[in-house]
């Protein structure tokens, strides 16, 4: 990323030099000069590209750790919900059944609240109310986006668990595996594989959702672009640049997922 930007910088400086020697003429030349000036003004002057670079770092940091937290929460909530669906009928009344029912109740409240409110509102509540005493914006953003993502990941993984044939479960149990061991060794690996495209999509959504971090003053990629815009009073270059960077990341990530899926599929043929 840095090398691309620095070569772009060198290219721009070079262009600026040539332009000084040999002024262009005609409408194309004028447009070219205007764009070039705009580019220099937005990204080169005062090293303004650093806003994008640092913002990108924050975006990656928040997305990565939020995704980890989301998968962790998602798997647990999915296990609680699908265990409740599968086991509640055949369990004997008692402490365990009550406990599972209680956790299922909590999981449902979590899913309802998180999926029923906008992520930007959740982020602001986290920053201005729940963690009002903390000034660690990155950590608060990771928690807010991770907790948000967990709700969606939970439903994705639950649908994956439910899609596995009940015979797989019975085969595991009949060998002598307990409920949890059957889940861990037999059901979850197959479920994750089945929902990998949906999980990847959730990750892509998460990357883009972190663009609202600016609401709590966290300088992510989007906020970086917006700061440049507010300094230069020119919106075109910084905002298009921000959009292109997101686009490149998403395309790259989609490509990686396609490769991963193909590899997983090959392992069975």
């Amino acid at each position: 990323m840095t090398s691309i930007l620095s070569s772009a910088y060198a290219f721009a400086v070079n262009l600026a030099g040539e332009a000084a020697e040999q002024p262009s003429s005609g409408w194309f030349g004028n447009l070219w000069n205007a764009l070039k000036d705009d580019f220099v003004n937005n990204f080169i002057t005062q090293k303004r590209y650093m806003y994008l670079l640092k913002g990108l770092g924050i975006t990656f940091e928040v997305t990565f750790f939020a995704a980890l937290l989301g998968i962790f929460l998602g798997v647990i909530v999915a296990l609680v919900r699908s265990s409740h669906d599968k086991l509640a009928e055949e369990m004997r009344p008692g402490f365990l059944k009550g406990l599972l029912g209680f956790f299922n109740f909590l999981a449902n409240i979590y899913l309802t609240i998180i999926r029923g409110t906008p992520v930007v509102v959740q982020l602001m509540i986290a920053y201005f109310i729940i963690f009002a005493t903390s000034n660690n914006k990155v950590l608060v953003a990771i928690l807010a986006f991770g907790i948000n993502s967990g709700a969606y990941v939970a439903e994705i993984i639950r649908s994956g668990i439910m899609s596995i044939d009940v015979g797989q479960f019975e085969a595991g149990r009949s060998l002598g595996f307990g409920y949890i061991a059957t889940m861990v060794h037999i059901i979850i690996p197959q479920a994750i594989k089945n929902v990998l495209p949906a999980l990847a999509n959730e990750f892509i959504v998460l990357i883009k959702e972190t663009s609202v971090s600016g609401y709590v003053g966290l300088q992510d990629l989007t906020k970086g672009g917006d700061i440049i815009r507010s300094r230069t009073y020119s919106a075109f270059m910084p905002l298009i640049a921000v959009a292109l960077i997101y686009l490149v990341i998403v395309i790259f990530f989609s490509k990686m997922v396609t490769l991963l899926e193909r590899r997983l599929r090959n392992s069975e043929r």
Binding site: D165, Q168, A171, S174, K193
Partner: peptide, 11 residues
Amino acid sequence: MVFQHFNLFPH
């Protein structure tokens, strides 16, 4: 136990 539909672990 052996099942009608084998139930081998496909992964």
